[in-house]
Amino acid sequence: MTPLLSVRGLVRRYGALVAVDHVEFTVLPGEVHAVIGPNGAGKSSFLALLAGEARPDAGEIEFAGTNITRLPAFARARLGIARAFQITAVIPDFPVLQNAVLAVLASVGRGFGMGRAAMHDPVLLDGARRLLARVGLAAQESRLAGDLAHGAQRQLELAMALAGRPRLLLLDEPIAGTGPEESRAMVALLQSIRQAPGERPGIVLVEHDLEAVFALADRITVMAEGRVIACDVPDRIRADAAVRAAYLGDDAR
């Protein structure tokens, strides 16, 4: 199977620090490829490079047969790369429904839409409500997004990412920092995304919650100090001595 995403020799420096150091990486269609590693390993920087928010100092990124290394973030989003951030990024001063409308709008319109009302458009509103229902936020549609609980904001953000039926989802710690209840809901939601007929986006999942990672991932890449130190199926990662030393060791305690 040809990979959906393939990354070769990706490098990103911050001054003397090499945050992402010659990373090789692939995601197959429909695959959940988890990235784990200690804090500061470069996971978020790596996602930023994939999303186009930061420019690599070296390396190539290919997505669905196109070289996207030099495309800006918004253009990558249009190709079908959607994103949830480590620090939740919704539009805090918009109501929940309006956030969802924006996400639907991003997926349907390409013009400026100056002549078309936004919040009275049945197409946008229906799409937005369907999205909210999918993540269980329908009842909260008129609250300000910034007033939602942290877990609910994460779900809203994920809903917004899903609006454009992305082919690749980049998720930065969607579970970390949520309570047990919310975290179970999020794992279930991610499972449902994986299995939704016809969609099955590839997912790059950066996550600290190893239980969730082992439950969801098809493959796991372990990063430390910017480098990939292992990449394999979950069972073998669990058994890998180098990984234990670099990461699991201090977490398994």
Binding site: A77, F94, L105, G109, A118
Partner: peptide
């Protein structure tokens, strides 16, 4: 204009530029 799709995008970008780019909006335009 501010109630239009265009206006919604403009206001979204004021509040969270990063999210708007990640959604695929060309904010600068």
């Amino acid at each position: 204009l501010v109630a239009s799709r265009f206006g919604l995008v403009l206001q979204g970008a004021r509040s969270n530029e990063r999210r708007m780019r990640a959604l695929g909006f060309d904010i600068r335009r």
